[in-house]
């Protein structure tokens, strides 16, 4: 269920992600319905509780805090949640490339 709520039932632990309304940045459902920027701080739901997690995450949409909620299956690696799919690992880590062109900046 890594891309849409309608996907197959989760078979691995799940975290919930969205984009923050104000600036579009990637956020994760944290404790007590909060939205956090670090995947490490995301609340992890066991597969059987994925529906409960989704319902909680959807509150963030209804409250106009976030956009595009969906669940991401993860595994734990050295105690930290790691998405199973590459796309979601990239979403958690940010672009894999330098943040600006190989570039060049005028000396100030």
């Amino acid at each position: 269920m890594s891309s849409t709520p309608k996907a197959r039932p989760a078979t691995a632990p799940v975290v919930f992600t969205a984009n923050r309304l104000r600036d579009g940045r990637v956020v994760w459902l944290g404790a007590e319905g909060s939205w956090v920027e670090a995947l490490a701080a995301a609340r992890v739901f066991p597969p059987e509780a994925a529906a409960e997690g989704l319902a909680l995450a959807k509150q963030g949409e209804r409250q106009q805090q976030v956009v595009g909620v969906y669940g991401v299956e993860i595994r734990h690696l050295a105690g930290a949640p790691v998405p199973l799919k590459f796309r979601e690992r990239l979403r958690a880590a940010g672009p894999s490339i330098a943040a600006e062109p190989a570039g060049w900046r005028l000396a100030s």
């Binding site: 309304l21 104000r22 579009g24 940045r25 990637v26 106009q64 796309r87 672009p95």
Partner: peptide, 26 residues
């Protein structure tokens, strides 16, 4: 939209008509 008076479903076609997409990170 920022005040919550428009939902994303209502806002999305409006922002797209003004060239604004929501991508992976922003």
């Amino acid at each position: 939209r920022l005040r919550g008076e428009l939902t994303e479903d209502e806002f999305k076609p409006l922002r797209l008509m003004n060239g604004l997409y929501l991508q992976l990170h922003a």
